[in-house]
Structures are given as structure tokens and as C-alpha cells.
Design a protein around this nucleic acid. Structure first.
Lengths: 129, 129
DNA sequence: CTACTTGCAAAATATTTGCGTTATT
DNA sequence: AATAACGCAAATATTTTGCAAGTAG
């Protein structure tokens, strides 16, 4: 049986309060504001544990650093190629795609994820072109 | 100006001969068969360089390890959740998706990539369920 | 009390880099 | 001959883990 701890709760709270897909290091910095003596190892340990239980989801984007997401429902992502910001796309996924590709390839497919790339609104307005 | 070397050619040849999306370590092991004293640093340096020039493409999948692909055209991927094998999906991409999501979100989108997850043919036939 | 979790520090992985030497142009 | 690239080893960066002490159930 696994136990509820102040550390785990604080980590979950930080994660739930953001949609920025943060790294373990970032979560660590935030949680330190509430529990100054928490260790980075504890943050990693809890994030991994929560990922294993399915409470959160670890994802890797183009920099290869583990990023953690409190949103565990299937959803698509957008990555700005200028500033690197990762955002959620709040549009329903196309489940039909699984069967279409499954039929064409013969593979058994049960999910898919999509990463869109381009320029976010801020970078589009800032950078003149 | 940058130079052609035996090492770079050997690395490219290894990469072109596979569609397994190998890690730097795997490429290193293969290239060693031809150039036994090549160093891992050289392999990393060349892979990074070739990625920067666009000759190859580095991608990250669910394990967060850099994987290299000689196929640089846009294509979708499939990952078997049992054996972890990564394969290319040889079906044309849906470019329409970019405009659809762009319109709905207001983001400037110029590409997307899709990762399908499920069971590959081998794992489906092997594992009884 | 029991045993899961913590903090700390060391270890393990993956990748990058400085430097003196080698090889391509 | 000039200089990009190499091999080697050390340095970084990210993540995992062993262990003694702390804390939740």
C-alpha cells in the first residue's frame, strides 16, 4: 500500500496548476517554495511513481527532456518552433484515424498522439516577417 | 566549409541501411564493424551535425533517448507497446489537418507528426490473449 | 510498530566538449 | 599549409538508486 505524503501532494498541486508541461527540475523549483528542503530525488521518484500509476503522464518532446502533464486524457500538442512553448490543443481527437491506419497497415492500433509545429500567437505577433 | 570523412560516410551508410530508428550507441556499435577505433564522441558529433544540416532527423519517442532517422520526409510512426519497436507508416500524411487545427486555434501551423501506439504484427501473433 | 517515503549523496545514463593529433581539401 | 574532424578523456546534464532516518497508516 502506498502512502500519501506532503511531498507527493505538493508535487501534484504544482502539476495541476500548470499546463506548461514542465520538467522535473521546474517542478522541483516550484515545490521548494512550499517545502524548501525537498530533494530533487524525491521529486523524480514521485513523478515516476505517479506516471506508473497513471495519475500523470510523462511525455518527451523535441528536446528529449522528460516533461510531466497532469492532463491524462488523450489530447494533441502544439510546439512553437521559435520559443519552444508547448501547449495543449483543445480539440477533440480523431479516433477514426486509428481504424483507418489499422486497416491500411494491418497493425493493431489503440491510440495516437499528434504534435503540431509552427509559431505560437506571441511569436507571430512579436517577430515581424 | 565542412569535410567529408570516412567516419561520416560510414555513419550515414549505417543509418541509410536501417529503418529501425536507432540510438547513437547502436549506430556506434554498427560503425565499429567497419572502423573499429571510431569513438562514440565522433558518432554523436556527426549525428548532431547531420541533424543540424537536415541530412538526417533526430527524434525522441517514449523512452527519451535520441533516435536518428535517415528518412527526412514527413511520415508517421508506430510504436509497439509490448516490444517497443518503432516502425514507419507508409501512408500519405493528411496535410489538411494543419489548416483544420490552425483555423480552430488561430495558431500558425506548418507541420505535424503522429505517433500511433498498439501491438505490432509479431507481438500480436506471439502473445496469446 | 511496520514499512513506505524522505533527504542526501553517490551512481548510472546519455550527451557534449576541450585538446592535442590526424586527415581532408 | 590550413583547418575541419578525429580519438580520447573529462565534463555536463538528466535520471536513478542505496541507505540511514523520518513519518504515515
Amino acid at each position: 500500500m502506498y502512502k500519501k505524503t506532503r511531498q507527493k501532494k505538493a508535487i501534484m498541486d504544482v502539476l495541476k496548476a500548470t499546463s506548461s508541461h514542465p520538467t522535473a527540475e521546474w517542478v522541483y523549483d516550484q515545490v521548494k517554495k512550499e517545502i524548501p528542503n525537498i530533494s530533487l530525488g524525491t521529486v523524480y521518484r514521485n513523478l515516476k511513481m505517479m506516471n506508473d500509476t497513471g495519475e500523470i503522464k510523462e511525455r518527451y518532446f523535441r528536446d528529449g527532456i522528460g516533461r510531466f502533464d497532469a492532463r491524462i486524457d488523450n489530447h494533441y500538442h502544439f510546439i512553437c518552433e521559435l520559443c519552444g512553448k508547448i501547449s495543449d490543443i483543445n480539440e477533440p481527437g480523431n479516433n477514426n484515424l486509428n481504424s483507418v491506419i489499422s486497416e491500411k497497415t494491418g497493425l493493431y492500433i489503440n491510440s495516437h498522439s499528434i504534435e503540431f509545429t509552427g509559431l505560437c500567437t506571441e511569436c507571430m505577433n512579436t517577430g515581424e516577417m
